[in-house]
Amino acid sequence: MKGLAAIVQHSSSRGALSALLFTLACLGFFWLNGHQPVALFREMVLGAFGDGYALSETLVKATPILFCALAVALPARLGLISVGGDGQLYFGALTGTAVILALGDLSAPVMLPLMLLGAAAGGALWGALAGALRARIEVNETISTLLLNYIAVLLVDYAVHGPWKDQSNLGWPATSPFPAGAILPTFFDTRVHLGLLLAVIAAVLLYIFASRSRWGLGLTLLRSNQRVGRGAGINYPLNVLLVMGIGGALAGLAGIAEASVIQGRLQGGLSAGYGISGFLVAWLAGQKFLLIIPLAVLMGGLQASADSLQLFAQMPSSSAVILQGILFAIVLAVGGRWRERMVP
């Protein structure tokens, strides 16, 4: 596996270069905005990791990003580039909510598994839809997942403006608050919830299966030489459906967790760009499942620190999005031949 080791080394040195350039770009951005760059950078870091509360909010943001990053990294094993994290997240939230609305007030031990299953199934369906189009009629999965994002977001909008709208809630388009049994447990009096644990377990399991198992080898093989992979008896269409479906299921879990814990109901604006943040994380990590975990936390920190930028420097909270954009551009530039970067 010398070749693999070389790729790992190669991509992590690229990662270090990207991080350095990004720090410099942050400092420059603050300076251009008329701030003490180093002091503000320190505030930003503290705002993300400075105390228990900041850290907990960072982990809250990191959870959906982690799920969505896995939803990108798994299809990438097969050479597929999915940008459908957001759509799968929304559709999972929609089907998970459907389960809650159908079952009503049940105790958590019954409700939670059913709700999570419902959301996973919805996300899986949304991912597998793009997978089926790819496998059956060679529709480019990047385009189809991108467009399915809009459909899923608008479906949620439709549901909360129309049939599922809580009439007692006057003008606000949202479902009625979820019953107590449908709220995922949280830890240590923070908003950090069960979803984080599930996402980390998923990342570890995917790592084990993708790098050690025959199935993972089959994916690598199909990506390298599809003809030879098929010749070895590996079913390409089935595996496209599998990776897109499993990825979608994970993003769907992110969706219902956001609705359940963070919003307490289903409403629009569920995702703060988690899908695209997840794409960025997956890519920064060179599609390596374990590396995705810390990078998702860092990305969560970047988003959480937007508050401290607002507070200390009166910079708009969208600064975090700008910084994320800068990060993305830097990684693109450092990555260069980015298709090659998709190789784990």
Binding site: L217, S224, N225, G231
Partner: peptide, 27 residues
Amino acid sequence: AVNAVAGDLDLTINAALGRFKALALFP
């Protein structure tokens, strides 16, 4: 080179392809 091997994977993996279906879940 095109029809029988995955060029960017190593000899061990390529040699195992002949019995891919017979490999254990975790080879």
